[in-house]
C-alpha cells in the first residue's frame, strides 16, 4: 500500500545502490539523487520562504498539522469498506475464476498467462499485487520476460480502489460518479501498454 511503499523507499535506496554499484548508468544516478534530495529541498524552500515572508513558521506548522488526525480518522470507514470487500474477494477464490475466464483474451495479445493475476490485482491491492510480482520473479527470475513485464505492470498504475477510497473518504465523498470507470480505463490502457512496450523493448 502507499504508506508501506513509502517507508521502504529509504532503505531500498541503500540496498539498490549496493547491488547496482558499478553497473549504474548516469541517468539512474541522477534520478536517484533527485528522489533523495526532493524532500529536503522542498522543506528548505518552504521554510526559508516562510521566514522571508515573516510568517510565524512554528505556529503555522502546528495549525496545519492539527488537521492530520481528523483526516486520517475520516478515511477509516471508506478504507474498511473497500479493503474488506477486496480481502473477501481474494479469499473466496473468485479471482481464480476470473483469470480462467480471461485467459483466452490475454493469449491473443501476447500476454503470458502467468502475469494475468498481477494485472487483475493491481487496481485492487498494492501489497497483493507486489506479492504476486515478487512470486513471479522468484519463480522465473527478475530478468525473464515475465519478470520484466510483471515489474512494468506494477510500475504502470497506482492502486485505483485504494486511492479512490482514501481521497474521497478524506472529504466525505460517497458518490464517486465516473471516477472508478476513469481509473479502471487508465489501468486497462496502462496494462495493455505494458505488454506492448515490453514486447518491443525486451522481446
Amino acid at each position: 500500500m502507499l504508506n508501506s511503499l513509502a517507508t521502504t523507499v529509504t532503505d531500498t535506496v541503500q540496498q539498490v545502490s549496493q547491488v547496482t554499484a558499478g553497473s549504474e548508468s548516469l541517468f539512474v544516478t541522477i534520478m536517484k539523487g533527485f528522489s533523495n534530495l526532493a524532500v529536503p529541498v522542498i522543506l528548505f524552500v518552504v521554510i526559508v520562504l516562510g521566514f522571508v515572508k515573516k510568517i510565524k513558521v512554528y505556529e503555522t506548522f502546528i495549525d496545519g498539522a492539527k488537521e492530520g488526525f481528523s483526516v486520517a480518522v475520516n478515511i477509516i470507514p471508506y478504507l474498511v469498506a473497500i479493503l474488506v470487500a477486496i480481502g473477501m474477494f481474494r479469499a473466496s477464490g473468485a479471482m481464480g475464476y476470473f483469470i480462467k475466464i480471461l485467459s483466452p483474451l490475454t493469449n491473443l495479445i501476447g500476454m503470458p498467462a502467468e502475469t494475468l493475476p498481477v494485472a487483475l490485482m493491481r487496481p485492487l491491492s498494492g501489497s497483493g499485487s507486489l506479492g504476486l510480482v515478487t512470486e513471479l520473479m522468484t519463480k522465473h527470475g527478475p530478468d525473464s520476460f515475465i519478470g520484466r513485464l510483471a515489474s512494468t505492470m506494477f510500475g504502470s498504475t497506482e492502486t485505483t480502489f485504494y486511492v479512490i477510497a482514501v481521497y474521497f473518504g478524506s472529504v466525505g465523498i460517497r458518490k464517486s460518479r465516473h471516477a472508478i470507470a476513469s481509473g479502471l480505463i487508465g489501468d486497462l490502457v496502462g496494462l495493455l501498454m505494458a505488454v506492448f512496450i515490453c514486447r518491443i523493448v525486451f522481446g
Binding site: T8, Q15, V16, G147
Partner: peptide, 10 residues
C-alpha cells in the same frame, strides 16, 4: 522504487 528494490533483492 518498491519494485526496483524487489528486483535488486532477487
Amino acid at each position: 522504487m518498491t519494485v526496483i528494490a524487489v528486483r535488486a533483492k532477487l
